[in-house]
Design a protein around this nucleic acid. Structure first.
Length: 292
DNA sequence: CTTCCTGAACAACTTAGCAC
DNA sequence: GTGCTAAGTTGTTCAGGAAG
């Protein structure tokens, strides 16, 4: 598409409003040209079926205008259209996510889906859910023991269990126990008269792991992977090589079954407890699947 | 060369059970 | 009710192979 074609194109009227003044945006591009490029990008973007045309054009418009302002050199029209397409695609994905329809498993009815369509399909907006939740929170908070409130409060304040534990003069282990009990008490009260589901998720640091849907999907993927693996057969050779602890897995299993704890075995062989556990599990698996 | 994927190892959190 | 310990569970990082 040439500069001349942008100038003569006047088909963007119904999609985007024509600017009242054809002001210069940047690098010689005028507002009308940016409009035309945005509409072109929107119309030719055939891989976002279902996204409304004006929404596409506005998304492309924002991205193109921003790029023009930031670009050190004059960008080509094709580059601006590509910028528009990229923005439309990203926005489309975001929209789907908001409606709970994103992800590889299109059949999955996600929480976002329920949350979005519950509010959208309601005849009028209702703050009922938020009010009920806030009242329940206030009632449950009063029903908790003072120490349970303290640990929850400290964790919320410091956002770090080690710092929170120090602030309360507790060991990390004691804080962890108290926190677990407090959470469980809260959970029971929240699900009063119902069977509470198992606790899930964890307050790990990092924004990625604050998303419960991420945790849920990750857990499901792992379960699927485990289920797909054959029960027997040689293990894949790729991955980090095993460290030689100077003891066979079978011997570790024997010693563990004789009463030695995982921790003490870990200390003896200079490995963390989980390494010992993995090897014991492996030996146990092999023993159980090998015919006598 | 880069990116993606994988298993091993490590780290952190949760839970159950015991003692006080 | 609380603190502690050990075991169980789950997330992160690292190193290496495969694919493009």
């Amino acid at each position: 598409m040439s500069e001349a074609s942008v100038r003569v194109s006047s088909e963007f009227g119904p999609v985007l409003p024509r600017p009242r003044f054809d002001v210069l945006v940047a690098h010689g591009y005028t507002a009308s040209q940016v409009n035309a490029l945005s509409v072109f990008a929107a119309r030719e973007c055939n891989w976002v079926n279902g996204m409304e045309m004006t929404h596409r054009a506005l998304t492309a418009w924002s991205a193109i205008a921003e790029h023009l302002q930031l670009a050190p050199l004059r960008p080509e029209e094709t580059e601006l259209i590509a910028i528009g397409w990229k923005a439309i695609k990203t926005q489309h994905h975001h929209d789907l996510k908001t409606r709970g329809l994103a992800g590889k498993d299109k059949a999955l009815l996600s929480r976002a889906f329920v949350r979005y369509w519950n509010s959208v399909s309601a005849p009028t907006y209702s703050p009922e859910d938020m009010i009920v939740d806030r009242l329940a929170l206030a009632q449950i908070w009063r029903a908790l023991l003072p120490t349970q409130r303290e640990v929850l409060h400290a964790l919320a304040d410091y956002e770090d269990r080690h710092v929170a534990a120090r602030a309360l003069g507790m060991s990390t282990a004691a804080f962890g126990s108290a926190l677990n009990r407090a959470r469980y008490a809260f959970f029971e009260l929240w699900h009063q008269h119902e069977t509470p589901s198992k606790m899930w998720g964890a307050d790990r640091p990092g924004s990625r792991h604050q998303n419960p849907m991420f945790l849920l999907r990750q857990r499901r993927r792992k379960a699927e992977k485990r289920a797909a693996q054959p029960a027997t057969g040689p293990k894949a050779t790729i991955g980090r090589p095993r460290r030689d602890l100077g003891v066979s897995d079978a011997e570790l299993l024997d010693r563990h079954e004789s009463g030695e704890s995982l921790t003490s075995l870990g200390r003896v062989f200079g490995a963390c407890r989980d390494v010992i556990k993995i090897r014991i599990d492996s030996a146990r698996n092999e023993r159980d699947t090998t015919p006598a």
